[in-house]
């Protein structure tokens, strides 16, 4: 029981560390798209790891925590995709250091302007 508790708390701590890194990423990254990358991928992982750690700490709650985790896993990509697409189409600029932007070509290939 003691080892399980410590593992659960460690996984929770790892998850919140990822949350912190994601938040650090949205502060430090140069443009919106890079920020979004840090702020959605890292924090989704941190969120899931934290919920997993809580589930290890309290195994009776695993089903409900898994429900929340599944929900986050489904919804968060949708909202960040919609946000990135809207930002691109409303003309939020890329950072100066960006090397290559392939999105316009991909749009033309698929017939959307």
């Amino acid at each position: 029981m003691g080892a399980q508790q410590i593992i659960g708390a460690a996984v929770t701590l790892l998850g919140t560390a990822f949350l912190f890194l994601g938040a650090l990423g949205i502060v430090r990254m140069p443009d919106l798209y890079n920020r979004m990358q840090a702020g959605t991928k890292a924090t989704t992982l941190g969120n899931l790891l934290t919920l997993l750690g809580l589930g290890i700490l309290q195994p009776a709650w695993l089903v409900k925590l898994a429900l929340i985790a599944l929900f986050v896993l489904v919804t968060n990509p949708i909202s960040s995709h919609a946000l990135a697409r809207a930002a691109y189409r409303s003309g939020v600029p890329l950072a100066d250091v960006t090397v290559r932007d392939e999105y316009p070509e991909a749009l033309q290939e698929h017939g959307e302007a």
Binding site: F71, V74, T75, P77, I78, H81, A82, R85, R89
Partner: peptide, 18 residues
């Protein structure tokens, strides 16, 4: 209005019932 992307439309259909 501008149409939502495929992902948003599918996600809405998928998530409405839950």
């Amino acid at each position: 209005p501008r149409r939502a992307s495929e992902i948003v439309r599918t996600g809405a259909r998928l998530l409405f019932a839950p």
